[in-house]
Design a protein around this nucleic acid. Structure first.
Lengths: 207, 207
DNA sequence: ACCTGAACACCGTTCAAGT
DNA sequence: ACCTGAACACCGTTCAAGT
């Protein structure tokens, strides 16, 4: 395969190479998949030498961690946005957050996969860990809100929130992996599955 | 790093190189993680040239698919074993299958990860697809059994089974990724979480 | 039929040198 | 301060040649 021509040499003097590298990395993931993400390809897309990225990221995993971090921020926003749109009823708010989680994964599968599969050890990246934590905390808040409203049963809120997280995370993961597509029977849509999953949660975690 | 000495040259004439390659691949995954799994390392462990594996597997993904296939068989066995041990009550059987799923993942995380993250497109490997399908079918059977017993509500059994799969899959995934380990609050164990998750399922999918 | 030896293109990473 | 050019060790894969 012929190598694509790139940006003219020495023509790259915008001030934010780091930003450009992150955008290019995500573009590779979206367009060509995770196996195509190499440091050299990212550098190529931006028009710099293969060594240049190492002035902004320690190694390949570090750039993945940075992409993942932006993904967690978007995931958080997706959940909060859904909650806001859901109004004031606790059950609707709880269900909306779960739906927001699944919606983010389905709309941004490449981003979602980086967040949960490509990072070996999240504790190595404190700011990534903090971003992921913020999303979980949002689920925790929703659970506490549900408990206060008498919607969700008593018990360790962290455990209940983790059950909610598990259910929507599992659905999102199976769906975007294609494993959830059943050949026989009526066609399942992610929308109806999300509805059913959040309903199951409210019933299953209820008093 | 010095290269480890290997089996003496030309000393490898057992009849099943394919089997040896699969065992070595799993050993690498368990001992050193997915990033360490290379064709050359697998060949090195078995004591053959780097080209030898290509007489038994088309490419690197094919060997991963074969390892994943064996994993799905073990997953299936773990669920069936748990169901058998649970006796005859539908609720107990349903919960046991979910617990068997999580138990397999927790006891064999390397195997579990190959099954669900390393395979790009499962439809490329029909026998792998069939093995994965068998596990899902087992969950489907449990759901149908639950419906017959009046335990599980009416509705598309495939959808309900997928919700069950999602919940246990999400829990297993989050747990082995380490994301589920919360710093604050009481310590969560996978056993208590599995109990809570399967209880939530029975309640949430109940009539 | 199955394996070796050598090769090719590619990648992650480093580092002295340039501006 | 930031990037280049060149290098090193490594990997996936192929293929003619050996037994």
């Amino acid at each position: 395969l012929p190598r694509k021509p790139r940006i003219p040499k020495h023509g790259y003097h915008h001030g934010d190479l780091r930003r450009a590298l992150l955008d290019a990395a995500l573009a590779v993931l979206v367009e060509d998949g995770p196996h195509a993400l190499t440091m050299r390809e990212v550098a190529r897309r931006v028009g710099v030498t293969q060594a240049a990225p190492y002035h902004h990221f320690a190694d390949k995993e570090a750039i993945l961690a940075a992409v993942a971090e932006e993904g967690f921020t978007k995931l958080y926003e997706s959940m909060i946005e859904a909650r806001t749109a859901a109004g004031t009823k606790p059950a609707a708010r709880l269900r909306a957050m779960g739906a927001g989680y699944v919606r983010f994964a389905v709309q941004h599968p490449a981003h979602f996969r980086v967040m949960f599969v490509k990072i070996v050890d999240m504790t190595q990246y404190p700011s990534l860990h903090a971003c992921a934590d913020r999303s979980f905390t949002a689920l925790l808040e929703a659970t506490l809100e549900g408990q206060k409203a008498g919607l969700v049963r008593k018990g360790d809120a962290a455990e209940l929130a983790l059950l909610m997280w598990s259910a929507v995370h599992g659905l999102a993961t199976l769906w975007i992996s294609g494993a959830a597509v059943r050949p026989a029977g009526p066609v399942l849509t992610i929308e109806s599955l999300t509805d059913a999953a959040t309903e199951m949660l409210v019933r299953g975690l209820g008093r």
